[in-house]
């Protein structure tokens, strides 16, 4: 049982190590790009690098979430080979679990804003919250459908033809289109036959 859990832990750590290495490489590359020129780099370059970082961080987050239980039940400590006396600050840094002051500040500000927003707004029932969520999802779905319809082309006639009154019926149009395709295929066959044999 311990061997199995050890293997799982090693696998999860290996996956995490691989992803962190990618992130470090991307950050180094991004930093080098920023230092190349005095002014800010073009936005497409920044946008591309941000997208790469986001995808890598997203992958790391998913991996951490997938192995959260394994990682939470793992404790790390130095072995006898580690020079604790000489490298105590380094050991402290490596095994640090406390966040940076900047991150703690971010968290504190976020929690304060959250508490302020809760205190300012009146309390609502869970049913009301659920109703609002459903309404929001419905609205989002409607907007998505509308936007999708704006970029979908599935008719056989143009708006101009439709406005001019040339539209007859969908079935008739399909038949006409099939006839045109058949005629085109026949014409192509005739052309190929002429090219092969020289006879009309």
């Amino acid at each position: 049982m311990e061997d199995i859990s050890t293997e799982k832990t090693v696998e999860s750590l290996e996956a995490i190590r691989h992803r962190i290495a990618q992130i470090v490489q991307s950050l180094t590359h991004f930093l080098a790009i920023l230092h190349q020129s005095e002014s800010l780099s073009p936005w497409p370059t920044i946008h591309k690098n941000f997208n790469i970082l986001l995808s890598q961080i997203h992958s790391l987050s998913n991996n951490l979430a997938a192995h959260s239980h394994t990682l939470q039940t793992t404790s790390i400590y130095p072995s006898l080979e580690f020079p604790v006396k000489e490298q105590e600050p380094l050991l402290t840094t490596l095994l640090r679990t406390k966040a940076l002051p900047e991150v703690e500040e971010w968290e504190a500000n976020t929690l304060q804003e959250y508490e302020a927003s809760i205190s300012s707004q009146p309390k609502k029932k869970e049913a009301n919250d659920a109703y609002q969520k459903d309404q929001l999802w419905d609205q989002a779905r409607i907007i998505f459908m509308e936007e999708r319809e704006n970029y979908s082309w599935f008719d056989f006639v143009t708006r101009r033809q439709e406005s001019e009154g040339e539209f007859v019926s969908q079935r008739q149009l399909e038949i006409d289109r099939a006839t045109e395709e058949q005629n085109a295929n026949q014409m192509l066959t005739d052309i190929l036959s002429f090219m092969k044999s020289g006879k009309r």
């Binding site: 239980h69 039940t73 793992t74 404790s75 790390i76 400590y77 072995s79 490298q87």
Partner: peptide, 18 residues
């Protein structure tokens, strides 16, 4: 780190989750 600390100088064990 490679020059300061030997490899395999850290290890882990199972524990209760925080």
């Amino acid at each position: 780190l490679k020059s300061t600390v030997p490899p395999s100088s850290l290890q882990f064990s199972r524990s209760q989750p925080p």
